[in-house]
Computed example of a mutant assay.
Amino acid sequence: MQKIASKLIQVMAECSQIPKNGVNDFHHYKYATSADVLEKVNSALVKHKLASVVMPEVLQASEVLNSKGNAEQRVTVRVAITLVDAESGESVLLVGLGSGQDVGDKAVMKAQTAAIKYAYLMSLAISTNDDPEADSRTDEGMSSALGQAKSGGGGGAGKAARCSDCDMPITPGVEKVSVNKFGRPLCMKCQKNQQGVA
């Protein structure tokens, strides 16, 4: 494993950072696109003579209702990515999980794309220059919601909105997005649990 490990260190150095060039217009956030991740990783793998073989496996598929009451498919996929050193024959296994939801036939492809992207991001320690847990807008909103809850201010009945799963206070913006997407108010953590995103 010494030869492939040495090459992976070089790949990690070349792929240490990928900018967030994608924009989600609906939820107003930026993200590293799958295309950007794959292009950078593939270039480094080829340069160091490392082949990649991806084997996807559907772990779960179910029908869910979207915020408009329409049926969609939600799929969770596990991908096993084997990296093989063309010179030494040594190999290493990377694993990723991803979920996708779609009204048509693209749920599996969305799940595979997420699983491959995050397998590389996590396994190769690739930074996208942020910390998803350090969302100042969410933190500020949560702080405001907590303050309103303590002071009796906030939404319609004089109280801040609360997550229907864990009963934590949530901001009006988080409540609106959650109700549109899941049909009920959920905090960010419970929304992530509902999506099952890796």
Results as ranks from 00 to 15, higher is better:
residue 1 M to Y: 08
residue 1 M to A: 15
residue 2 Q to L: 11
residue 4 I to S: 11
residue 6 S to V: 09
residue 6 S to M: 08
residue 8 L to E: 11
residue 10 Q to G: 00
residue 11 V to P: 15
residue 12 M to Q: 15
residue 16 S to A: 12
residue 20 K to D: 00
residue 20 K to M: 15
residue 24 N to L: 03
residue 26 F to C: 03
residue 27 H to I: 09
residue 28 H to P: 00
residue 28 H to C: 08
residue 28 H to W: 08
residue 29 Y to A: 02
residue 32 A to Y: 06
residue 33 T to P: 01
residue 35 A to R: 10
residue 37 V to D: 09
residue 37 V to G: 05
residue 38 L to H: 09
residue 38 L to C: 07
residue 40 K to E: 03
residue 46 V to T: 14
residue 47 K to H: 15
residue 48 H to K: 08
residue 49 K to P: 05
residue 53 V to H: 10
residue 54 V to Q: 03
residue 55 M to Q: 15
residue 58 V to A: 09
residue 58 V to H: 01
residue 62 S to F: 00
residue 62 S to D: 14
residue 63 E to H: 00
residue 65 L to K: 14
residue 65 L to T: 07
residue 66 N to R: 04
residue 71 A to S: 15
residue 73 Q to D: 08
residue 74 R to E: 06
residue 75 V to M: 03
residue 79 V to C: 02
residue 79 V to M: 04
residue 83 L to P: 13
residue 83 L to T: 08
residue 86 A to V: 09
residue 88 S to L: 10
residue 89 G to I: 13
residue 89 G to Q: 09
residue 90 E to K: 01
residue 90 E to A: 11
residue 91 S to V: 05
residue 91 S to N: 13
residue 92 V to H: 03
residue 93 L to F: 02
residue 99 S to D: 02
residue 100 G to M: 04
residue 101 Q to T: 11
residue 102 D to E: 11
residue 104 G to P: 04
residue 106 K to R: 10
residue 107 A to R: 02
residue 108 V to S: 05
residue 109 M to S: 13
residue 112 Q to M: 14
residue 113 T to V: 02
residue 114 A to C: 05
residue 116 I to Y: 06
residue 118 Y to G: 04
residue 119 A to T: 03
residue 120 Y to E: 07
residue 121 L to F: 10
residue 121 L to P: 04
residue 122 M to N: 14
residue 122 M to D: 13
residue 122 M to H: 13
residue 125 A to T: 06
residue 125 A to K: 04
residue 126 I to H: 07
residue 127 S to K: 01
residue 128 T to W: 00
residue 129 N to S: 11
residue 133 E to N: 07
residue 136 S to D: 07
residue 137 R to K: 14
residue 140 E to G: 01
residue 141 G to R: 08
residue 142 M to C: 04
residue 143 S to G: 12
residue 144 S to E: 14
residue 145 A to P: 03
residue 145 A to F: 09
residue 146 L to M: 15
residue 146 L to Q: 14
residue 147 G to A: 15
residue 148 Q to P: 02
residue 150 K to R: 14
residue 150 K to Y: 11
residue 152 G to P: 08
residue 152 G to A: 06
residue 155 G to I: 01
residue 159 K to H: 13
residue 160 A to M: 00
residue 162 R to V: 14
residue 163 C to M: 09
residue 168 M to V: 11
residue 168 M to I: 05
residue 169 P to L: 03
residue 172 P to F: 06
residue 172 P to W: 02
residue 175 E to I: 03
residue 176 K to H: 12
residue 176 K to Q: 14
residue 176 K to E: 15
residue 177 V to P: 01
residue 177 V to F: 15
residue 179 V to H: 12
residue 179 V to L: 11
residue 182 F to C: 07
residue 182 F to K: 04
residue 185 P to G: 08
residue 188 M to L: 13
residue 189 K to G: 12
residue 189 K to F: 08
residue 189 K to A: 10
residue 191 Q to W: 12
residue 192 K to F: 05
residue 195 Q to Y: 04
residue 196 G to E: 02
residue 197 V to H: 14
